[in-house]
Amino acid sequence: MSVFSPALLSEAGALLESLRQRGLKLATAESCTGGLIAGLLTEIAGSSDVVERGFIVYSNEAKMDLLGVPAHLIDLHGAVSEACARAMAEGALENSKADIAVSVTGIAGPGGGSPEKPVGLVHFGCASRRGPTAHRRFVFENANRAEVRLRAVVAALDLIEAQIGTASTRLA
């Protein structure tokens, strides 16, 4: 029995098949999701031909050490920012053999939020070797910690699919 719903597993399986058909490998760079994206994808048998590696970079130091996110960027914009999400995705590409990388950084709560950066704020990046880095920002309002994290996983899958869908001719 999986910890993930059948619907989410089905969506992840379809994404893996899309990546497989394009001959693409994926890396993840996860902060607030703590490895849930990679965990979901690797729940599916045979995913090792697509999932190249995953980085769990919960601390700022891990973001800098493992992904090369510049300290000044975190100091200027914060770890939960568009700039950091983009740098995380690009760093995951640089530090892997993947063709595409997704990143997620956010405030899952229940604490840690502010008026400028509320609980539920999540930034996503999706970088590819042959195209521009995409970014999305969501605020998952009225959601508990588990819901924010799970919604972030779904949003990350959607972002990867959008990135390979719009860039499929560049990435194929």
Rank of each mutant, 00 (worst) to 15 (best):
C32N: 08
T33A: 06
G35R: 03
L36H: 02
I37H: 00
A38Y: 03
L40M: 03
T42V: 13
E43N: 13
I44H: 09
A45I: 09
G46F: 05
S48E: 05
S48K: 08
S48F: 06
S48T: 14
V51E: 07
E52M: 04
R53A: 02
R53D: 12
G54I: 03
F55S: 02
I56T: 15
S59V: 10
N60Q: 13
K63L: 11
P70M: 14
A71I: 07
A71V: 14
L73E: 09
L73Y: 05
D75P: 09
D75M: 13
D75W: 05
D75F: 05
D75V: 07
L76Y: 12
H77I: 12
A79I: 03
V80G: 08
E82L: 07
A87Q: 04
M88I: 02
A89S: 15
G91S: 07
A92Y: 06
L93Y: 04
L93T: 03
L93R: 05
S96N: 14
K97H: 15
A98D: 04
A98M: 13
D99Y: 06
I100Y: 05
I100C: 11
A101R: 09
V102L: 14
S103Y: 02
S103P: 06
I107H: 03
A108T: 13
A108H: 01
G109A: 01
G111C: 13
P115H: 11
P115Q: 13
E116F: 11
K117Q: 11
G120A: 07
L121F: 11
V122A: 01
F124I: 14
G125R: 00
A127S: 15
S128A: 14
R130Q: 13
P132I: 10
A134G: 01
R136N: 06
F138M: 14
V139C: 13
F140W: 02
F140Q: 04
E141M: 09
N142C: 08
N142A: 14
A143H: 10
N144R: 11
N144P: 03
R145Y: 03
A146D: 14
E147R: 13
V148K: 03
R151F: 09
A152Q: 07
V153T: 10
V153K: 00
V154R: 15
A155S: 11
A155C: 12
L157Q: 13
L157G: 06
D158M: 08
